[in-house]
Design a protein around this nucleic acid. Structure first.
Length: 336
DNA sequence: CCCGTTCAAACACCGACGTA
DNA sequence: TACGTCGGTGTTTGAACGGG
């Protein structure tokens, strides 16, 4: 076993112990799952009342999905408004985002429960469809922006202008983008902590389904907005792996079959899972591919390690280099 | 501002594909 | 073989666009 693999194994063991020692998540996440599934039909119905209009995308937190079913509307991954659907129809409110909308996107439209079909709401959508330049120079939100670009790319259902195929992001009820929160903080790999407070743990950047047909696999992607020596790809793999250990524990917990459903699978939870862990970051001059296709056994399940290096251009993902073979386009496979 | 036109999103259906 | 999931195609619907 090479050094990196043994580093992975000791990390898996450590996270496994943390989750065993702090078992309160089992009940907590079981409760989330029941509430989210109870709300599923309501959420789908609410969505039939309006269209998602690029480049504004619908998001929902776990809290919103299990509670009030407010949609978050985001531009380049940043909250710009909340949508509410009730007996009165669809309404949009910018409430606490107004100031940042002005500061970051030059948007001076203030909405407080305006109708989705009102002139004001239409002007608001139009402002963002003109692709406003981010006025804020700090790159604080760049990871959210990059995540959003990747989600838009992976969500495409037409392979003609899709960089890679057979990948679809997991969304609540197939509708709202979300971040799968974990009870772990893993941003510092050498100091993984447990978080009891709901919503305070680290989130899985992108959780997606990969493959075609019955054997479609779940995939945890750890996204970085930079590919620099201080945060090398291997660290992203380790961070993704720590979240992966949580996902497998969740799927093997008493609410595992419910979460399998939430992740968008219609069939039975498999007896043995293959969970893909993908380091997802911008291409560098020499991309680290040393960990590609490593398989690590964990109880009855398996982790598969992969990379996905991308280039962007003009707010779009333009080129992807990946070890995910099942995602490669046919014409590219035949070229070899 | 209204209303017909145009365009993009959503939907319904089904074939391809890969797995149990 | 049966089944689950992605994506292709054609149609419907929601919202933008533009002329008057």
């Amino acid at each position: 076993m090479d050094d990196f693999t043994s580093q992975c194994c000791s990390l898996i063991k450590k996270v496994d112990e943390i989750l065993k020692y702090n078992s309160e998540w089992v009940q907590r996440y079981g409760g989330y799952a029941k509430q989210i599934l109870l709300n599923e039909d309501d959420l789908k119905y609410k969505k039939t009342n309006f269209n998602e209009w690029a480049p504004l995308y619908l998001y929902m937190t776990i809290g919103e999905a299990k509670g009030n079913l407010l949609f978050s509307l985001r531009y380049v991954g940043q909250d710009v408004a909340k949508l509410k659907v009730d007996g009165q129809g669809v309404t949009i409110a910018t409430n606490s985002f107004t100031e940042r909308n002005m500061r970051d996107f030059g948007c001076n439209i203030h909405l407080s429960n305006h109708s989705w079909s009102s002139k004001e709401a239409s002007d608001f959508r139009k402002h963002f469809s003109n692709k406003p330049i981010r006025l804020d120079v700090s790159k604080k939100n760049d990871e959210h922006r990059v995540e959003s670009l990747l989600l838009t790319e992976f969500s495409k259902s037409d392979s003609k202008d899709k960089m890679i195929c057979n990948i679809q992001p997991v969304k609540f009820s197939g509708i709202a983008r979300f971040q799968m929160k974990t009870p772990l903080t893993s941003s510092n790999i050498s100091n993984i902590c447990y978080e009891k407070k709901a919503g305070s743990g680290g989130g899985i950047d992108i959780i997606s389904r990969i493959g075609i047909g019955r054997g479609t696999k779940l995939c945890v992607m750890e996204v970085k907005d930079e590919n620099v020596a201080a945060e090398p790809p291997r660290n992203a793999v380790l961070q993704g792996l720590s979240y992966g250990v949580f996902v497998l524990n969740l799927l093997r917990s008493e609410s595992g079959d419910l979460w399998w459903k939430i992740f968008g699978f219609k069939g039975k939870l498999p007896d043995s899972l293959e969970l893909y862990i993908v380091c997802t970051m911008p291409s560098s001059e020499v991309n680290d591919i040393s960990f590609a296709e490593k398989v690590i056994n964990y109880k009855q399940d398996f982790f598969h390690l992969h990379y996905l290096y991308f280039q962007e251009e003009n707010q779009c993902i333009k080129k992807i280099e990946t070890s995910l073979k099942q995602c490669k386009k046919k014409e590219l496979l035949n070229d070899n």
